[in-house]
């Protein structure tokens, strides 16, 4: 029942504490779990259920709704090639085919060395820089087949440290300093406006 490392458990409690209702921490905790082990294990989901006060089935329901959560092992680098319109107009299909050939796998699978998982993906909000792709959710723009080959070579280099492994998203975390924090309050426990608001005036406006 203990999936999270001590350090991450502490972090988990810090995250839960930011929300008026603990269940809101579900997705952040799933990310934290994925950061810890590269994918979301059953043990992780069980512990998250306990932490946010719901059943494992509910955690599974939420987890499986979102594409970024992997419920099986994936490569160190998940390479998502955008195939939506703007990228498709500028050669995304060809890029994906090239990637399949280069990596020797079909989209949706992982190379046997466990380094790369290749996926055809949807719009990545970089439409002007088509065709684009993401490696562990970090963008690469206007990618040509030779750019792709070069990228793969760089990533395959064991000394490459530029792109964190799959599961790690932001490498900077938000920390709310205790002395500055207002604190989250359960909505049932509040029924007055915040101090800077004078309700009467507002009702008239």
């Amino acid at each position: 029942m203990t999936f999270f490392t001590e350090e991450n458990l502490e972090l988990a409690h810090e995250i839960i504490g930011r929300y008026p209702k603990q269940r809101s921490a579900m997705i952040p905790l799933l990310h934290l779990a994925q950061e810890q082990s590269g994918w979301v294990t059953e043990e992780a989901m069980k512990q998250i259920g306990v932490l946010v006060g719901t059943s494992s089935a509910e955690v599974l329901g939420t987890c499986s709704f979102y594409e970024m959560f992997k419920r099986h092992e994936v490569g160190k680098y998940v390479v998502n090639i955008c195939t939506t319109m703007s990228c498709a107009l500028l050669g995304a299909e060809e890029l994906l085919e090239h990637a399949e050939t280069r990596l020797g796998i079909k989209a949706g699978s992982t190379t046997s060395d466990g380094l790369f998982t290749l996926e055809g993906a949807e719009c990545q909000a970089a439409c002007t820089e088509a065709p684009c792709l993401q490696v562990n959710y970090r963008h690469q723009y206007r990618v040509t087949p030779s750019d792709f080959d070069q990228l793969i070579d760089e990533l395959a280099d064991p000394n490459n440290e530029e792109t964190p492994r799959h599961g790690v998203l932001a490498q900077i975390r938000q920390h709310i300093p205790v002395e500055r924090s207002v604190g989250a309050v359960h909505p049932d426990l509040v029924n007055v406006p915040p101090v800077w608001i004078e309700e009467k005036k507002e009702a008239n406006s």
């Binding site: 719901t54 059943s55 089935a57 329901g61």
Partner: peptide, 14 residues
């Protein structure tokens, strides 16, 4: 979930 309070079945996938 709502009536029995046993949310042991849930929609999964999308």
């Amino acid at each position: 979930d709502e009536v029995a309070g046993d949310p042991l079945i849930q929609f999964t996938e999308r």
